[in-house]
Structure formats: C-alpha cells, structure tokens
Design a protein around this nucleic acid. Structure first.
Lengths: 116, 116
DNA sequence: GGAAACCGTTTCGGTTCCGTACCGTTCATT
DNA sequence: AATGAACGGTACGGAACCGAAACGGTTTCC
C-alpha cells in the first residue's frame, strides 16, 4: 500500500514544509546539506566522507565542508575510526536527532492539511 | 481524504527526493530559495519583493538576492509594474515551470516507492 | 622496509550569501 | 509644489560555498 500523491499535492506539500522551516528561523540548509543530514540519520552507519560523497555523487570537499557547517550547528560529530585511522566516522548527535525528528513532524502535519 | 504519512515515511520521502535532486546535478538551491520558487509557482500572482519577504518572514535583500540567483538560472523574471512603478512584479518562466514540474514528478515517484 | 593506494582535509581564486543600513525612484497627500 | 511614505536595490564587512589540485597521515602490498 504505497503513498499516492498528485504532482500538485506534492508541490504544495514541499512548499508548505519549506515555508514552515524558513519561517521557523532555523538554519538555511542547502539541498545538499539536507540530503547529507537525512542520509546520516536514516541510512545505517557507519558513515564516511567518501561513502557519502559517492552516495550523493559529489566531491569529497563538498562533504567535508557540509560536515564543518553542520558540525558547528551540532547536528553531526566526527570521530577518527580506530580500526582504520584513515577513516572518519560521522555520528549523529542529540541536537541533530531533534532537528530531523521535528522536520519529519512538520512534513506529516503539512501532509495532513493538504487539500484534495 | 487527507494524505497520511508516518514520520519515518516523511523523512524517507524527503531524503529520497533530495538525493535525487543532488544526483541530478541541478542547482544547489537553499531551503529559502525553494520556498520562494514554489510560492511564485503555486500561489496566485502578482508577486512582489515585499510580499514575498512578508510571506517568508525574511528581509527584502534576501528576496532580492534569491531573485538575482534564480533569475540567472532563468527560473524567474522581473518586470516593473507599469501601474505603480515602485513595484517589481516577479513572473514565472518556461525554464522555471519545467524545473518545478519535474520536482513535483520526482516527489510523486519517490512517494510511490516508499516502503510501508 | 619502501612504494603505492587510500582517506580526509586544506589551499587557491572566485562566487554567493548574510544582516544592517542607506539610496534613488515613484506615488500619495496636502 | 512639496513632504513623507512606500518600494526595490545597493554597499559593506564577514561568512560559507564552489571545483580543482595538492597535502599529510595511514594502511596495504610487494
């Protein structure tokens, strides 16, 4: 039983959610940053810079910079992999989990308000 | 008959859509820019800088700059209002309509693929 | 042990974005 | 005709971003 959405509903949902996020005054993340953040929180760990770069189809510095920004926001944290010290493991944080959880709630709420 | 989504489904939908957009290699819009673009394409005209600033709860320069960027992408166009030459009317473009339409289709497709 | 491969970060020049404050034009009111 | 309000845009210093390339630290492989 999959989710059925018409294009007009999908766009309205996207607009209402974006609008709510902007108005809430939180950080103005880019689409890349959102994709990275959600991947870290939804896909099973471990997450590495290279792995994320491949999954998103972007270069490594893009990931490094996004992690810098979201690390400053305390949405993610970095830790050296002790089993292979070349790797950096990206981990979730309490603040990041709260942010993602709240985002999910906003989408659900806006979906429920959607007109036919 | 409203749309029912669980938070986990909402987040997965958001992730899959963002991921598809990033991988498609299009412009990396910020959440603010997306909110502006969708508002221009979904809400009835006319759209002005001030009106958009109020709707999003941001300052005018934010709108001006976003219109600069999206104008360079040919997603929107600006025209002086001849009835009140203080106003600038923001209009849709063919390229912008295509972009928005494609975004809607991506959301619909990802929603259909959503697991239970 | 030394070369090669791998990983994440840093550097470079250049672009875009931010918020605050100010500017030039146009309209409304008197 | 003049004043004040309204509108969009610009200037500023500071921050974040880009892609391409180079850089150290680590592991792997002969």
């Amino acid at each position: 039983m999959s989710i059925h959405l018409r294009p007009s509903q999908a766009l309205r949902l996207w607009q209402q959610t974006s609008l709510a996020e902007v108005r809430a005054g939180g950080p103005d993340l880019t689409e890349r940053q959102i994709a990275i953040l959600l991947t870290i929180y939804l896909d099973p760990p471990p997450h590495t810079v290279r792995g994320l770069a491949e999954k998103l189809g972007v270069t490594k510095p893009v990931i490094t910079r996004a992690l810098d920004t979201m690390g400053a926001l305390k949405f993610v944290s970095r830790h050296r992999d002790e089993r292979d010290r070349r790797n950096v493991l990206i981990r979730r944080t309490v603040d990041g989990a709260l942010f993602v959880e709240r985002l999910g709630d906003v989408v659900v709420a806006k979906a429920a308000e959607l007109p036919l």
